[in-house]
């Protein structure tokens, strides 16, 4: 563990609390992509299923339980509790275009061709692109509630902080994980446009609006 990874994980936790808080205070899931949230459930289930056979630490174990259960809870909130506030006509990104290619890539580019490795690799690739339906939805509406942008900022910062973590691990442990690193850089790259608008508008007290 190092400070980058710890802060990254804390940003990830924060993003989930912000999202749940947003839905409770506004009593709605407006502006939230159900598809992205469903992809996160798939990401966490496929990556963290190893908690049944690989022991790492209490920290790792409890975080895995938390991410699986909170992502399922969020899916419940969007799909049942606040369903009337969900507009499927705005959430139209085709998830097949993400899940299919990620699965094929996981079959081709992995460390070992076995069940648990392919699940892990698939989850890494899918996590990198799972934000697409959410970004696509914002692109369509051209705006987002401020609290939704705080959620996305925390979620983007989480993986961005993993990059210095990998650099740190390379120098201190000599370890390199090309699959995680490449996917993590792609994942962070997808947020760059968003970060630009977030920093230049939202953090200056303005509303998040995309240029027409």
């Amino acid at each position: 563990m190092n400070v980058f990874r710890l802060l990254g994980d804390l940003a990830h936790l924060a993003s989930i609390f912000i999202l749940v808080h947003k839905m409770h205070i506004t009593r709605s899931c407006r502006g939230i992509s159900f598809k992205t949230q469903a992809l996160y459930v798939l990401v966490f289930l496929t990556r963290y299923l190893d908690l049944f056979w690989a022991w790492i630490s209490w920290y790792n174990f409890l975080m895995k339980i938390f991410f699986i259960s909170s992502s399922c809870y969020i899916l419940y909130l969007v799909h049942y509790r606040f369903r009337p506030t969900y507009d499927p006509s705005l959430d139209t990104f085709k998830v097949e275009y993400l899940v299919g290619p990620c699965f094929v890539l996981a079959l081709i580019f992995n460390y070992h061709f076995d069940f648990s490795e392919i699940l892990w690799t698939f989850s890494i690739y899918l996590e990198a692109v799972a934000i697409f339906p959410q970004l696509f939805m914002m692109q369509r509406t051209g705006e987002a509630e401020t609290i939704t942008t705080h959620y996305l900022a925390a979620l983007g910062v989480y993986r961005a902080l993993y990059i210095p973590n990998w650099i740190y691990r390379y120098y201190t442990e000599g370890t390199v994980d090309p699959i995680a690193i490449v996917a993590g850089i792609v994942q962070t790259g997808l947020y760059l446009d968003f970060f630009y608008v977030y920093v230049t508008k939202v953090l200056q007290g303005q509303k998040f609006e995309l240029p027409a």
Partner: peptide, 10 residues
Amino acid sequence: EGKQSAHDEL
């Protein structure tokens, strides 16, 4: 072992 480092990450 053969596992890459990120397997112990979240």
